[in-house]
Design a protein around this nucleic acid. Sequence first.
RNA 1: GCCAAAAUAGCUCAGCGGUAGAGCAGCGCACUCGUAAUGCGCAGGUCGUGGGUUCAAUUCCCACUUUUGGCUCCA
Length: 587
Amino acid sequence: MRGDDMSQENKIDEQLHKVRHSMSHVMAEAVLQMFPEAQIAIGPAIDNGFYYDFDLPRALTQEDLEEISERMRTIISEDKEFKRNVVSREQARSMFSDQVYKLELIDAIPEDEEVSLYNQGGFTDLCRGPHVKSTKELNPNAFKLLSIAGAYWRGKETNPMLTRIYATAWTNPKDLRLYLQKLEDIEKRDHRKLGKELDLFSLHEEAGPGLVYWHPRGARIRTAIENFWREQHYKNGYEMVFTPHVGKSWLWETSGHLGFYKESMYSPMEMDKSDYYTKPMNCPFHIMVYRNSKRSYRDLPFRWAELGTVYRYEKAGALHGLMRVRGFTQDDAHIFCTPEQMESEIIDVLRFSMFMLRSFGFEQINAYLSTRPEKSVGEAEHWAAATESLRKALETEGMAYEVDEAGGAFYGPKIDLKVKDAIGREWQLSTIQFDFNMPQRFGMTFVDRDGVEKQPYMVHRALLGSIERFFGVLVEHYAGAFPPWLSPDQVCIIPVSEAFNDYGAQVLRTLKQNGFRAYLDDSTDRMNAKIRNAQTMKVPYMLILGEREMQQQAVSIRYRNGKQENGVPLGDFINSLSCTIEKKAQI
RNA sequence: GCCAAAAUAGCUCAGCGGUAGAGCAGCGCACUCGUAAUGCGCAGGUCGUGGGUUCAAUUCCCACUUUUGGCUCCA
């Protein structure tokens, strides 16, 4: 992008930011009109809009939001000027003497910074600014109050819970409309909704919240994902391992999980006077496999992969469809290697990861490098070497990345990969993490060339993250219209009338023999209804069969996008479908 | 875990003090049909669970469970 475009864009962003921030002041004024005794906290501009936090005498209702909106429109129409005033701390304190949160904010302003106030007629707020010049720069038809939510004062769990009003705001009604349409699109793509409509999976409160039931149609997709995953892992030098779902407390004491994460582990089961815990991670088990023999530098690296299902007690309020669950399957692998191998191993993982993500139709992938946090284990030189190898791998692959300083886990630095989905939302999927903790705790060693026992490097990586979550992301990315290689039903055969059911059955046999997921709709529905049903289930290909097709041993293809191709010889269709599946192409 | 809202048939939803209603799906019958819903009929619910108020509760109140939107958390 050229410089001018950039500055043009920055100006627009700046104006939008001012509009949103100013709107939040207008909203605060409206709320204070309704609740003069309200305590006001903070009200920043955020992506797509703004919010303001209040301490209110009662809970807000939907009707309140309408009244607030109405009052906001009135305030905007009054063409009030935003006036900036710099005041002393004492003046500020006395002005906000009945506003406890503002007083706290005033005290938090560094001594060398000036304290500024913004006033628009009936309302003054402590604020750094900047704001629009006057409310006439705000469009009364370009904002919408969206939701009421609870939020801790300053985001701390121990602080009081305030009422937050979220809103979206734009410079003109058209942008608002576009944004509201985007919200609708997001709702249509919601994997929970599509999961029901397409009969992919379910969750059952009576059987345990946050535990996923994969229905046959969802399981077909999962099987396609897993088959591809296994095949590619073997191709990329990995071995599969299978490990137990539970382990005795010795394992979790040694790993440190009972020390660090006990509250998010499922409670133990007592057997033969021992406590068994359901696994929250696979790594200790993979380490047991490693420890089973004396290891030589000649054996390394080991790359052991497992689709390992783990259970973690997530807080009740955190559960969300497939995105945040209590039982999930990690596409896990652990790499045990020597210091010399570390760098090329990381490069390989990075490449592999990019290949997998692209195979699933994600084109935009961003990398994040997280370095050593304050509290951490392991030696400084190991951290430095590992971080360096991560950095080098990213650079070798020519990937732009952001550094999250001190954002690593306490046990090692990491690279996270985030993908952008079809509507631009970012999802974190891959993670590549060094672990200096486990090898230490489990006393892992290998005998090096010089006959000395040394500690191997351990890398923990997941490419898709959790299969459940990844599946949820896929559903939303494709809005349920999966590319044929993943689609639960690839082909629906629709005879125009019962007379052609036999020909339909013959085509079905041929397709099945060729390994396609196909079905014949020989119900008593009319053809139109069958098409509609297949269409709502987002089946990529519908084959319409009647007299003409039967005569020519052909099929007429209706694609799910409505396009049509008539009289295609069955063999041609099979070839083209094979090719589409092979290429993992979307249609 | 915290704040707020919600929970009615398999699904989507209406009803909201006088003990339940639609559409779709399901089942049956008829229709035999050329590119997004053929017609008619039948069946389906102790209105999330447990208490309370009331002559009477799906409806009002309380608690619990779960879900939703956030907050916090996320090895």
